[in-house]
Every structure is written in C-alpha cells, then in structure tokens.
C-alpha cells in the first residue's frame, strides 16, 4: 500500500508530539488536547485509520477468480433471472419504501385470502358438527311432544347409565339418540335427507320401517340398561309414572348422570316429564 503512505506525512504538521517528528513517520498522533479532547479530532484519526487498514494492493489472482465467477454467472444467465430480495435493494429510502409498500400490500392481500380460506374451511367443519349437535339437542327440549317425551324418559333414566355406561357400544348409543330425535323431525322432510338420517333409514330398511326399528332399538337399549328397573319399553301409558320414576331415580343418584352425551339431556326430558306427570 505504498501510495497510501504519502498522505501519512500530513499529520506531522499538526502533530503535537515532539517525538512524532523523529526518525519515523508517526502513523498515529495524539490529538493536541490529549485524552480528554480525543473526540475533537476524529477526522485526522479517521484518515489515518483508513490509510492503515485499507488494503490498496490488488491481488491479481483473487481478482481473476472473481472475474471468472462473474463471467460464469453472466453466461448462465443468473444475472437476468435473479429476483431482488429486500436485502438486495439499496436504492434511496423513498424509492425503496414506495416499491416495497406495493409488494407488502400484495403479500398482505395474499396472506389474508389464504387465511380467510382456512377460516372458512374451519367454520365449515365446525358448523357441521354444531348442526348435528343442535339437531340432537333440539329434539330433547322439543320433547314436549308427548310420545317423544315418553320415549326419551325411559331411555335416559339416569340409573341405567350410571350402572354401566361403557357397556353399550357407541353405535347403539347413536342409533338410540337418532331414534329419539327421529320422532321429532320425521315430519320435516328435508332433514331426513341428511347423511345421518339416511344411515338410520338404511339401517331400518326403509323410511316407513324406521319407527319399528327404533322401537326395537330402544327396547333393546332399555333391556341392556334396565336390569335395575325392568321398565317395559316405551308405551305412552306409563308416561306419567315413567316421568316420576325417572325424576325420582335421578334424584337418588344424581352423580351418575352427567358426563355422557345422551345422559346429559336427561334432565331436560325429565323435567318435562315431571311437569307432565304433575299436570296429569
């Protein structure tokens, strides 16, 4: 770096150090004010530092390698297709921020559309599940219809479930629940088109056989459950007594009932039943 050392002589003129003018050129000179005034003289120091640290000799071999890499990239066409990333954009601030704000807006738009789609999909599945529950749930409150109430009451008698809730396979439970719900929705034609109802109809062997099928299912369920009560299925006649008994029995063992999905509905049916029983 010989050519860089010529300017190094300059500080001699400004040097406050007497020994600086000695036999060697002082690369680094103390600022005139000493340590306290050190910050006052940074330009000189900067120039000295730059002169000392910069490497002004070019290594031809290194340059040759770099230029070869340049040619290779250029001939591959890498310079034409490469996309400018944010860290490659060193244009002045205003120009850059305008350009990037457009890009940022596009990214935000894409992201919102994507996330929106995900959200809609999530709503779709979640909504479907909720609809199902609503259908089942709605049948229980609507068990103000006398026959539904009577069918619901025995099935949901708490002691049975409390005794052996895990004995019954879940499919039987589902069928049971569907059968109860069926009573209340069978007149609403379009509801029966749904896949769950179609399965029920299929299992029954035809739409007109559903009632019989359900009666069978519920009776079986009762028999599975009802070793304790030996309740005779679901005839409208024992409605009042069934309501009372179920009310009583749940009063006997309240702890057993909550927990199972179908059992949770029992209180609703029970209360309706109980009211009916009192009214009747």
């Amino acid at each position: 770096m010989p050519e860089r050392h010529d300017p190094d002589g300059r500080p001699n003129h400004r040097s406050a150090r007497p020994e600086g003018s000695g036999g060697r050129p002082p690369r680094y000179v103390a600022p005139p004010g000493g340590g306290a005034g050190g910050g006052a003289n940074p330009p000189d120091l900067s120039a000295l530092l730059a002169a000392a640290v910069r490497v002004d000799t070019v290594d031809p071999e290194a340059e040759g390698r770099v230029l070869a890499a340049f040619r290779a990239a250029r001939d591959e066409g890498a310079h034409g297709v490469a996309r400018t990333r944010r860290r490659d954009d060193w244009r002045p601030e205003g120009e850059r921020s305008r350009r990037w704000s457009v890009r940022a807006a596009l990214v935000a738009l894409t992201a919102s559309v994507t996330l929106g789609g995900v959200a809609v999909a999530a709503i779709g599945t979640g909504g479907g599940a909720r609809d199902d529950n609503d259908e089942r749930g709605r049948t229980r409150p609507s068990s103000s219809a006398p026959d539904t109430a009577t069918t619901a009451a025995p099935g949901s008698s708490a002691p049975g479930h409390a005794d052996g809730p895990s004995d019954r396979p879940s499919s039987a439970q589902d069928t049971e629940a569907q059968c109860r719900a069926y009573e209340s929705v069978k007149d609403r034609g379009q509801v029966l088109d749904s896949a769950a109802w179609q399965r029920l109809v299929e299992a029954a062997g035809g739409e007109k056989d559903v009632e019989a099928y359900c009666a069978r299912q519920l009776t079986e369920a009762e028999e599975r459950n009802g070793a304790d009560k030996a309740k005779p299925g679901k005839s409208p006649v024992p409605s009042a007594t069934a309501g009372n008994s179920s009310g009583n029995s749940s009063g006997d063992s309240p702890g057993g009932s909550p927990g199972k999905g179908s059992v949770q509905d029992a209180p609703g049916a029970k209360s309706t039943n109980g009211a009916k029983g009192k009214a009747g």
Binding site: V66, L67, A69, F70, A72, A73, A78, H79, G80, V81, A82, R83, T84, R85, D88, D89, W90, R91
Partner: peptide, 11 residues
C-alpha cells in the same frame, strides 16, 4: 457478489 449481482438494486 458476482453470482447475485443481478439481484442488486442501487447506485
């Protein structure tokens, strides 16, 4: 630098 030169924007 030689490879990514095409990405650079600025003076």
């Amino acid at each position: 630098i030689a490879r990514d030169l095409g990405r650079f924007r600025g003076d």
